[in-house]
């Protein structure tokens, strides 16, 4: 299982060095549009996301319709393009539907954690002093747990299920994001242009929005994007341990786990959920890397 990228601090320390308010995003786009690999994998992600969203229209068959007569059939058996699982359900349809849960597990916790962690990070960074200590020392306690251990501990305590898994992943992801946001904010805060803005009479709120947020946003965003793949892998690992979503919900990690029993019957078909997770994870990793480069956040 991939761990949460550990270079959070360095990533943030190396954050913004200049005003990047105007023209920044167009520069990013300019860099990105010639980065064909990132674009290619971005297209792949868009494809996966769209197929998950439009699962009801795209899935060739009912993902929950089982049939004992057609269990564990090979690829291209009759109408089952990617074969069937241990209950005779269409693998392709389940993979498409499973994308909903699995992508949700990758994206939703990162999204929530980015908002929550980002908020506390910016707050701590901007306020400094005691508030900073209070927030950051609390985060430090969570940092004392390797992510997998923390996830297993929380998940093992809360029990299995979709909501519990999301809560677990969110809690695991908040501290590193918070730390990145805090470091970036602290750095931005001490920069000259903030003082200049203050001197020119700008309000705290406007400083926060115009300068701090904008300059903090890109490292946090880039860092968060690297977490999507980690979150997907972590979620599938929890499912594998029986701490994930409940069946019969189609979910890649769960499919991988249950099909393991049938691997001697249909090795190829049973490998598909693993391959799907791998490919998706690679895609997110490459795209987040491309973004990092395009947004000129130094790593």
């Amino acid at each position: 299982m991939s761990d949460i990228p550990a270079d959070a601090v360095r990533l943030a320390q190396a954050a913004p060095t200049a005003h990047r308010v105007r023209g920044y995003w167009s520069a990013v786009w300019n860099r990105l549009r010639y980065d064909y690999v990132t674009l290619l994998f971005l297209a792949l992600i868009v494809l996966i996301v769209l197929s998950a969203i439009f699962a009801p229209y795209l899935a060739p068959l009912d993902p929950n319709k089982s049939s004992m007569a057609s269990r564990l059939k090979p690829i291209l058996y009759k109408s089952f393009i990617l074969g069937t699982d241990e209950q005779g359900r269409d693998i392709l349809s389940r993979l498409i539907w499973g994308g909903r849960t699995s992508l949700l597990m990758g994206i939703a916790p990162v999204f929530v954690a980015t908002i929550v962690g980002g908020f506390f990070g910016v707050l701590a960074g901007y306020a400094g002093g005691k508030l900073n200590s209070a927030i950051m020392r609390t985060m430090d306690v969570f940092f004392a747990f390797p992510s997998v251990l923390l996830a297993v501990a929380i998940s093992g305590s809360l029990g299995s299920g979709l909501i519990n898994q999301m809560i677990t992943l969110t809690i695991v992801l908040i501290p590193p994001i918070c730390r990145v946001a805090e470091t970036a904010t602290t750095q931005v805060r001490t920069m000259d242009f903030i003082d200049a803005a203050r001197a020119s009479g700008a309000s705290t709120a406007s400083i926060l929005v115009r300068h701090v947020l904008v300059n903090v946003l890109s490292p946090v965003f880039v860092y968060s994007s690297t977490l999507v793949s980690a979150s997907i892998l972590l979620a599938s690992g929890l499912s594998f341990l029986g701490l994930g979503v409940s069946p019969p919900t189609p979910d890649w990690g769960l499919m991988l786990s249950t099909l393991r029993q049938s691997i001697y019957v249909q090795p190829l078909v049973c490998a598909l959920p693993g391959v799907t997770i791998l490919v998706t994870s690679i895609a997110f990793n490459l795209v987040s890397d491309g973004l990092r480069q395009a947004m000129d956040v130094k790593a």
Binding site: S229, G237, F240, G253, G274, L278
Partner: peptide, 18 residues
């Protein structure tokens, strides 16, 4: 390296056993 950080290692472990 990308394979290393992207592969679900528990899945890889199952494949290794088989």
């Amino acid at each position: 390296a990308v394979f290393g950080v992207s592969v679900p290692t528990f899945w890889l472990a199952v494949v290794l056993v088989i």
